[in-house]
């Protein structure tokens, strides 16, 4: 298939960016979107143009490193999938594909399509863990946890931290991301001890880093490559309000 690519190019964080239009021919429909980008970069290299910078690593949909806002949607036109697993058969021959970086104050652009998501690390550093040291913990089977609770915690825990929720939210809200960790650890007995502290610390860090406020549109769960439900946001709200009430 032949394609036209409208790609955001930006030299570095401070530079002003703009779209560039590239033509690309003979792409097979079985290649993945990122393989198509590889072919584009090889072509640019041969033309003496600097290749397009974009984040990617595992290319099997789990590391959360790939991003890209493709044709108006985070991770492109397929659902429950990351960009690296998106395949070209989802596009039409001759189509113009618009590729943009995640856009959010919380995710400043590093170069071209690459953004800085350390804000997510910072939010988790504020409290997204159970405070136990290595060693000296009880036997794994000492505390039974019902299968339903464990499954629900696992649903939340599948978050890959890619940032699609922020990218797609019209408010750039990071609530789905924050709620995943808060919900997972609030559900499990191991995490309950510091559930209040965790919810408050993580929300406060999230607010500090310039993300918007959740207005419950539910767009995030539609674009989430792991299909995580916004019911976890309800649990985060509950944890946060309860924590405040206890003060």
């Amino acid at each position: 298939m032949d394609l036209k690519l409208k790609i955001w190019r930006q030299k570095d964080a401070k530079a002003k960016g703009q779209f560039e239009l590239y033509s690309l021919n003979n792409i097979t429909k079985d290649s993945s979107f990122l393989e198509m980008m590889d072919v584009l970069n090889e072509q640019l290299l041969s033309q003496g143009i600097e290749p397009v910078a974009f984040d990617h690593d595992c290319r099997e949909g789990i590391c959360g490193m790939c991003s890209l806002f493709i044709n108006g949607r985070a991770h492109g036109p397929d659902t429950e999938i990351t960009t690296c697993q998106l395949h070209m058969r989802k596009f039409k021959d001759g189509e113009t594909i618009t590729v943009e970086p995640w856009r959010s104050n919380g995710f400043p652009i590093i170069k071209d399509l690459m953004v800085d998501r350390t804000a997510y690390d910072k939010i988790l550093q504020a409290g997204g863990y159970v405070s136990v040291n290595t060693g000296g913990v009880p036997d794994a089977n000492a505390i039974p946890i019902s299968k339903e609770v464990a499954d629900e915690a696992m649903d939340a825990a599948t978050c890959i931290g890619c940032g699609a929720c922020v990218a797609t939210c019209k408010n750039s809200s990071a609530m789905l991301f924050v709620s995943n960790k808060v919900s997972q650890l609030a559900l499990l007995p191991q995490g309950k001890a510091e559930a209040s502290r965790r919810a408050k610390a993580m929300v406060s860090k999230m607010d500090e880093l310039g993300f918007g406020n959740c207005t419950n549109t539910g767009a995030c769960e539609v674009e989430c490559p792991k299909g995580i439900s916004i019911s976890h946001i309800a649990r985060l709200n509950r944890e946060f309000l309860m924590a405040t009430a206890k003060e």
Binding site: Y129, V130, V132, T134, G135, V137, P138, D139, A140, N141, P144, I145, S146, K147, A150, D151, A153, M154, A157, Q184, L185, L188, Q190, G191
Partner: peptide
Amino acid sequence: DQCVAQGVPFAREYGGL
């Protein structure tokens, strides 16, 4: 033991183990 204490949601049976 360590991973369970950290909140790793391993698969469980209906009995909770």
